[in-house]
């Protein structure tokens, strides 16, 4: 008889793999990709392809240079590439994408040890560096569906910038809520179509890749605060929810495993925190949008949130003070 394999129990394993999980996330991002192509034209496909290719290449090279095993097979670099692309306007020059991918994969992810070890979301890290470095290119928005006419009409302002000047009534310059929901508005590639994001998000929840806690708490907090800020105006609140990168951030970026808490109460704290910071930035700061800053800020707090929300081991009883101890 051949030598038997001796290993620690359990001898049975579930079929889930890291690659399988990442593949599910990629599938969930496909509806948003399709919408971005419909809304902004084939250049969005090109941007996504360039970002994915760069992320995979940088991951491969970084691992090679650092003499570590090749991890591109886990597909996490593909996810980062897609998410980063989804955070850019369609008019972005391709070389800027390359810079963003380099920062996301090499600096944020691989310098800290690769998958699972990064302390902030790589795609958001990359996006923020691009936003700070190339602020005008990152904020020049193209009119939706204008590619069909052969002209890249540059729109004046995004819905969020318009909302910034809210004074009791929602401006008539804004696209209708229905257009906002479908994604017919200025914005980044993957963030505009709420319906596509919801389809993808639902897929992830049904496949149990993510739990709905973080998205619900994040979006819910923003909804409540914006309702108060809009003095009970539901239209204003709806515009706030459908604008900017809130939905993309809540479903795809804030739920990143490595940079969100694993405890359920931690997820609640994290989601509510993301919502709060987003609102503070949207309402009081100079910037029109705050989702990425909110997520990155909460990413940094994750270890502390986890420490504070760790569940008690099964059966642990609260130590009640006896009467004598209380008397002392």
């Amino acid at each position: 008889m051949k030598k038997l394999i001796v290993s620690a129990s359990p001898h049975a394993r579930s079929n889930e793999t890291v690659t399988g999980i990442m593949l599910d996330v990629i599938i969930a991002l496909v509806p948003s990709l399709i919408c971005s192509v419909v809304i902004f034209g084939f250049r969005s496909l090109l941007i996504t392809a360039v970002c994915v290719a760069c992320c995979v290449l940088f991951e491969y090279l970084a691992r090679k240079i650092m003499k570590r095993d090749n991890t591109i097979g886990d597909l996490s670099a593909v996810v980062t590439g897609m998410l980063l692309a989804f955070n850019m306007p369609v008019s972005i020059p391709l070389w800027m994408c390359v810079v963003g991918c380099f920062f996301a994969i090499v600096v944020v992810k691989q310098f800290f040890g690769g998958i699972g070890k990064n302390f902030v979301n790589p795609a958001i890290g990359g996006r923020i560096v691009m936003l700070v470095s190339f602020s005008s290119a990152m904020t020049s928005w193209t009119e939706p569906m204008s590619w069909l006419n052969g002209v890249d009409a540059v729109s004046t302002a995004t819905p969020l910038a318009v909302l910034k000047d809210f004074a009791g009534e929602v401006s008539s310059d804004l696209p209708s809520l229905w257009h906002m929901f479908l994604g017919l508005r200025g914005g980044s590639l993957g963030e505009v179509s709420t319906v596509a994001i919801l389809i993808g998000g639902l897929y992830l929840i049904v496949k149990r890749v993510i739990k709905p806690i973080i998205p619900l708490c994040f979006v819910g907090t923003v909804a409540v605060i914006m309702l108060i800020a809009g003095k009970g105006d539901f239209t204003y609140m709806a515009y706030q929810l459908l604008s900017g990168g809130l939905m993309l951030g809540a479903f795809f970026m804030a739920t990143d495993y490595a940079t969100s808490p694993i405890t359920n109460w931690g997820k609640v704290v994290f989601g509510v925190g993301c919502g709060l910071v987003t609102c503070v930035i949207r309402l009081f700061a100079n910037l029109p949008e705050g989702v990425s800053y909110a997520i990155i800020l909460m990413n940094i707090l994750v270890p502390h949130i986890e420490t504070l929300t760790r569940p008690k081991p099964f059966g642990t009883v609260k130590e009640k003070k006896t009467k004598e101890e209380k008397a002392v």
Partner: peptide, 19 residues
Amino acid sequence: EEPAKIIAGGPMMGTALID
């Protein structure tokens, strides 16, 4: 078929045998 692993007990908590 040629066995590669033999377990005393169940697959979740059993012990893999050397022989």
